[in-house]
Design a protein around this nucleic acid. Structure first.
Lengths: 258, 258
DNA sequence: CGGTATCTTGACTGTTGTCAAGCCCCGTGG
DNA sequence: CCACGGGGCTTGACAACAGTCAAGATACCG
């Protein structure tokens, strides 16, 4: 419920010379090191410049700040630059259900496209920054740049695949399997960003994880306890160290590499 | 595993004079009475003609026939004209997990866009027919017809919203709620097609429903028993009659209309 | 340094899964 | 037309995993 953007303050604290996407909020798509994960994949240099013209860059948020609210008018999609975000639906009785976890290079807000209203709220789990891409401008540009249209079709397709994977995960009822799969998901997404796949910090609380996976926070806690006892992961509060990756994959019923 | 198409046979049985989409397999998009539900929404007459040029119409399938297989190369998306279809994922150990139920006017196959391979298999639950839309042609045409691009963005957005609704449904762990929500979903989709929202036939077996909802078939059966005992629905095998719609919505925790 | 949010652990309960038996419906073939 | 067979469905008994409630410990923020 804090509408205040801290973009200005954040920008002052970070010297412009730092040409790294996740620390410098005012960098362009062409210079952003997340480019190869984010929207610009499949675009050439000239096309990226045109994309840059419609992307509002470098806004920052701190923990608890909203990116958008459920049922609010859909105007833009958001590319995560730094930090982590969750999306959640609030039902009439006030219950919150976490529907997504988003890390740098990923795109949020696509659940608003069909109905012109966001289907969920998005909130920062820690200090972070993002780029805003007004959807109507993206649509216009997509008709002019076929490779951008193709990229965005594929991006939406990815979201569909991701959601269906979550669905099958949550339908298959083993709590251990769900938690293991979440750890592996974070691990592989970290790996893509050249971060350690075996040592990371959970961006969500036990309650959020539980809500996301369809179990209670107590169960999440107990599963972490079990996995630790089996020497598969080391859990120190939010700090996770994967000790036995094959065993973790076995529990998650993931057989192939990642 | 039956690759045989019965299009030819089917076409013979139905007189061409019947200008109704779901019975005449060789009707065009412009004439199809599902047009207002399907891909052509938001297109004008001239644009629909161009869409018609890329749509392969009127193929028919009988129960158990595959529309496409998991991991097979993604070539096209499919618009359902008649009948009902399910999508499912097969995991390495042979377990099948139902991931979707598709009724006339709905589009299947979008889970193949991002990776160029279908993420699930699609099979006919009864005799039915469909239109095939080669994706690369749709992409080409979309760059030329902005309203088609917009329509397809929205269609994919709808799929994302639908999947996320399933996710929240399956996460919230009441079996009664899940079954009630499925009944309501079928009911409202029937309503859109001008069919009875209170009296319909379940296209899936108990086992399929259970797999889709993340419960066992026995639980599905018991829930139907409970709902019947409460005089909320009348269940006669696959035949469903909704007697107390408000009560059903209450169980499904749907408060609003639809 | 104090207060609150988060996390862990325990005991008990309950819904759902599992296993098993039997029924019903429907299509097939005699 | 009827007998047969098999898939689909129902129902019951029991067990187990996870939910609920509660208390206490720990971490984090101002």
């Amino acid at each position: 419920m804090k509408p205040t953007s801290k973009a200005a303050i954040f920008a002052k604290e970070i010297p412009y010379a730092v040409r790294s996407c996740h620390t410098n909020p005012s960098i362009s798509c062409g210079e952003c090191r997340l480019g190869e994960l984010c929207l610009p994949i499949a675009l050439d240099a000239k096309e990226i410049l045109r994309l840059d013209e419609i992307v509002k860059q470098g806004r920052a948020l701190s923990k608890g700040d909203y990116l958008y609210h459920q049922d609010e008018e859909f105007k833009a999609i958001y590319a995560i630059r730094a930090g982590s975000f969750k999306t959640f639906k609030t039902s009439r009785d006030g219950t919150e259900q976490v529907t997504g976890l988003y890390l740098p290079g990923e795109i949020m807000g696509m659940d608003g496209i069909s109905s012109n209203r966001y289907g969920s709220s998005a909130i920062a789990l820690e200090t972070g920054s993002f780029c805003e891409i007004p959807f109507h401008l993206l649509e216009d540009l997509s008709t002019k740049i076929p490779s951008l249209q193709g990229r965005f079709f594929r991006l939406m397709g990815q979201e569909i695949v991701k959601d269906q994977q979550m669905l099958t995960l949550v339908s298959s009822n083993a709590a251990d399997e769900r938690v293991a799969a979440l750890l592996l998901s974070i691990s592989s997404r970290n790996h893509r960003r050249k971060l350690s796949p075996t040592h990371f910090r959970l961006p969500m609380t036990r309650a959020d994880i539980g809500s996301y996976l369809g179990v209670t926070l107590e169960t999440v806690s107990r599963v972490f306890g079990r996995l630790q006892k089996l020497a598969i992961v080391k859990v120190d509060n939010r700090e996770i160290e994967v000790i036995d990756m094959p065993a973790l994959k076995k529990i998650a019923k993931v057989h192939d590499g990642d």
